[in-house]
Design a protein around this nucleic acid. Sequence first.
DNA 1: TGGTTCAACTAGAACGATCTAGAAGATACT
DNA 2: AGTATCTTCTAGATCGTTCTAGTTGAACCA
Lengths: 335, 335
Amino acid sequence: MSELQRRPTLMDVAEAAGVSRALVSIVMRGAPGAAEATRQRVLQAASDLGYRADSRARLLRSSRTKLLGLAFSSSQPFHAEIVDAAYAEASAKGYEITLSAVAGGRPEARAIETLLDVGAEALIIIAPTLSVDDLALHARQVPVVSLLRDDVGDLVDSVSSDDHAGIALAVDHLVSLGHRRIVHVDGGTAVSSDKRREAYRTEMIRHRLQPVVVSGGPGEEDGMGAGQILQADLPTAVIAFNDRSALGIMESFRAAGISIPADVSVLGYDDSNFAKLSYVQLSSVSQDAPLLAAAAVGRAVDRIDGAKSPGSVVRTPHLVIRKTTARAPEGNSDT
Amino acid sequence: MSELQRRPTLMDVAEAAGVSRALVSIVMRGAPGAAEATRQRVLQAASDLGYRADSRARLLRSSRTKLLGLAFSSSQPFHAEIVDAAYAEASAKGYEITLSAVAGGRPEARAIETLLDVGAEALIIIAPTLSVDDLALHARQVPVVSLLRDDVGDLVDSVSSDDHAGIALAVDHLVSLGHRRIVHVDGGTAVSSDKRREAYRTEMIRHRLQPVVVSGGPGEEDGMGAGQILQADLPTAVIAFNDRSALGIMESFRAAGISIPADVSVLGYDDSNFAKLSYVQLSSVSQDAPLLAAAAVGRAVDRIDGAKSPGSVVRTPHLVIRKTTARAPEGNSDT
DNA sequence: TGGTTCAACTAGAACGATCTAGAAGATACT
DNA sequence: AGTATCTTCTAGATCGTTCTAGTTGAACCA
């Protein structure tokens, strides 16, 4: 019944159309050098046979794959947003993207192997955890672009978001609303947690305010825990490490009857999809996934096309104000 | 400085080791037919040169890619869970997986093209939206396994979860807790919404209870809307189309001061990652992503290895009871 | 001694595309 | 007419592997 027939080759199409292999190749690539009539005849034959070029053979010969390898972590919603955007950008530049996920039992190194095996011409790695040396090793073979991490040595490109600027936006926004007691719930050991914490400290001091950091983490649970601690001596505003943490903080406040933003303002980071939900409406610092993705794809393509030296691109995040931040409550002065 | 050097080939290794190309090939594949001493010499030369087999050439020749193509939707967290599990299962069976995402501007057809282009030997498509005819078309070329959808004709395999059994579990559970006024908030136009709604109806009738369906959808917002409606005449239990909808329903109840599960029990569907969160603790019907993924990969590999006819596998979901379901409140009799 | 068997190795043809160089035929120019 | 030029097409090499069919030489046996 459903037997798998051998895949037709250039030769089959050539015979069917009564021309040479080479000419079929010309027609299929849309290259110049074929008469219009013949072109039509060949295309007809090809579609009759259900011909589809074997990319292995094609790429073996031409050594161009037009393929960008993208390694991401399947458990991170933010990565998924970047993946989406990368597809769009790549296809606009005439490239395809192959994905490889870093999952539970699947280390980054493995994901990269796979990408190279299918012939990616460049690697885009979201938040690489590999050592600088390992990254450099791969960079000798193909251009490597690191996304969301910038301390990757000078052999690999990096595209990242300016954490300091993001936190500065957050602090400025809250200060301009009259807040003075602004606490930061940090990301614990998560990537870029250190940067954001330090940025928070310097920005607070710049405003001549007292920085207070409560330790947290990247998940809702971490936010919950931090929220409990904060209730003992409630500040007027909280800057969370990310949106998920913010969600936990808010949940803990709500359970205690603390109202947001009347009693306390909460600001997230990432502007994740769920921040937009009607019942969340979380104000957040947006890293703008589409822009980051576009920049990464752009770098990768430039490098493939011969741009000599790697460089680093830093994008400035922006603030998305929704319903969880408001003016500081009256008569709440600090130290 | 960082110039990309030409990738070393079998020939280079052969010269370095002073043997023929063929022998190097034998050694690299670990095939029998080389003396131990030579084998070591070749391996040494290979690692000195940093040799890594060109899979395009290899696969062109052997016409085996050991590659499974997996198409998924990047915006669905549940798909991500399946992807994770599929990786593990595939590598246990000696296969690699290439991913292709169905994203905003990127239709399923495009994703499939890409998978075939890189040489996938079989296609696993999560919740395919393609027509039965289109699927059959691809199935003539490679084995195709449909995940989470079973009406796909008899040329393609399907692995799905038994929606009727899942809903039956849900209804039975609530009935056993003494609930009689159980409402279903459906999934609107979402895939398998019809099936779950019908299953709910028959199961309710089987228990001689009055089925009541409120129309909803797959997102939190849809749940919110349905929650508002339900408040007018509160039932003792709600079965949501999925977890996200359940979350919306709960949020709407909470805002109205209705307590869960004291006043009303809420049951989700999917057992998503967030259902486990400490402040959610949602009871839910689990479709068991790892099992589904394993079954799909298993089918794909069997078909590649020559299993003749496609078949369909249906897995039975199970119930995960957490904190949102409890005994029905006393003295709340129905019609 | 001469034949068989076996392990260790190699030459060269695949695989299915692209690419280079050139042939054949039509057209234009002097 | 003779030649240059352009378009359309083709033969054959090539990419880096694997595979088939050997070849070589040593060991074994009667």
